[in-house]
Amino acid sequence: MTRLERNERLIKIALFVIACSAVSILAVITIFIFSEGTPIMFKYGLRSFLLGLDWYPSEQSFGLLPMIIGSVMVTFGSLLVGVPFGLACAIFLTEFSSRRLRHILKPIIELLAGIPSVVYGFIGVVILVPFIRETLGGPGLSVLAASIILGIMILPTIISISIDSLQAVPRSYREGSIALGATKWQTTKMVILPAAKSGIIASIILGMGRAIGETMAVIMIAGNAINIPRSVLDPVRTLTSNIALEMGYASGEHRQALFATGVILFIIIMILNTIANATSVKGKAAK
């Protein structure tokens, strides 16, 4: 074996160890959350956790249903705001804008992802919440406010992944349709969007994962009251907010119940990621 080959082998081993450590960190976190969170779930019964309406940790009442509903409402609300907006942006930038405009706008949109979430929350508290309180009523801190801010926060994810999948549609599809006398919009609607479908779905699911996991901005603008909201103007608490708000002073079973909250969140996000991977892999296999 020459020296070069020996070096090659060393580098390979070193990189392998580094790659393993990244994976093992994930494994450690997973094991930790589950070992801390699952015992209490089984002690009081899964049912009382998932379907219980009351969260009084000091009285051994750990109902997470309001928070689960809260997370679901805020997440879907953010999709209602972010998906039409983001998809329209992506379609405009790939199919209708000039190349120069796209080169200017795409990096700017991606910059949105770099704004810290506390800043989004701050803007929500200072501008959006008072606006909702004055025009629509209610406390302002609400499902609606959280949905709008989260909808904006998931835009970069949706836009950039949708743009990538729209651009991956073969040029020949576009030309074929255009040469048949279809307008750009007809081409987009009937040829490009169906062909890019799997990538667009993946972008929506990844945006959803981001929305469901977001904590800081949501704490600042969702109101955090533990009840099932009757309208979008009511305040709400999400799973993530629940952990972040109470972890500081929780101990004993209360602390374990917060880990149980984490377990539920973890499972929801895992399911979403698996769906996202499956749809994008399926899309690639189809091409």
């Binding site: 020949s172 048949l180 009937m190 062909a195």
Partner: peptide
């Protein structure tokens, strides 16, 4: 009407491909 070197059927049924332009 233009026909290309590589046939590019749209990713739809035979019927839809022929009807596409007319529907447009």
């Amino acid at each position: 009407g233009m026909v290309f070197a590589t046939p590019i059927p749209l990713p739809r049924s035979i019927y839809e491909n022929v009807a596409f332009g007319a529907k447009m």
